[in-house]
Amino acid sequence: MPQSPAGTLTSQQKTSSRRPAGTLYRGREGMWSWVLHRITGVAIFFFLLVHILDTALVRVSPEAYNAVIAQYQTPLMGLGEVALVGAIVFHAFNGLRIILIDFWNAKYQKVMFYVVLGLWVVTMLAFVPRHLINVFSH
Rank of each mutant, 00 (worst) to 15 (best):
V82S: 00
A64M: 13
Q71G: 15
T55V: 13
V128M: 04
V50E: 14
E29A: 06
G7I: 02
K107R: 09
A106I: 10
L48S: 09
R59S: 15
L79M: 08
M112A: 13
I133K: 11
F47G: 00
I88C: 11
H131D: 10
R19M: 08
I69R: 10
L125G: 08
F103H: 07
I44W: 09
S16I: 12
E81R: 03
V89H: 04
T123F: 05
L117Y: 02
N105K: 01
R28L: 07
N94A: 02
S16D: 13
M124L: 06
G80E: 02
Q71L: 13
F113E: 00
S61R: 05
I101R: 05
M1D: 13
V121Y: 04
V58T: 05
V115M: 02
N134G: 08
W120S: 02
P75H: 11
V50N: 10
Q73F: 15
G86M: 04
T123S: 11
V121S: 03
G22D: 02
T23W: 14
S17K: 07
Y114H: 01
A126P: 00
T23N: 11
I99F: 03
L132R: 00
F45Q: 05
L125F: 11
P20M: 06
T23S: 15
G80W: 10
E29G: 01
L49E: 07
Q109F: 01
Q73N: 15
P5I: 10
R28P: 06
V85C: 03
I101P: 03
L132M: 07
L125T: 08
S4H: 05
V50P: 07
S61T: 04
K110D: 06
F103R: 06
I69C: 08
Y25P: 12
L53R: 06
V50D: 12
A106H: 13
S17G: 10
G118N: 01
L84D: 02
R28H: 15
F113N: 00
V122Y: 09
E81Q: 14
V58N: 15
P62L: 05
I101F: 04
I133P: 14
P62Q: 14
V121P: 06
W34F: 09
N94K: 02
W104T: 13
M31V: 14
A6V: 00
L79F: 08
A126F: 05
A67W: 14
N94I: 00
S16P: 02
S33W: 05
Q12F: 14
F93Q: 01
S16M: 14
I69Q: 13
L48T: 03
N66F: 12
L24V: 13
F113V: 00
L100Y: 11
S137E: 03
R38D: 08
Y72Q: 14
I101Y: 01
L57R: 12
V121C: 06
L49Y: 05
F103W: 11
E29M: 08
V35N: 06
T10N: 09
S33P: 00
L49V: 06
Y108K: 07
R19P: 11
T15D: 11
T15M: 12
A70F: 14
L24K: 11
H37D: 14
E81D: 04
V60W: 09
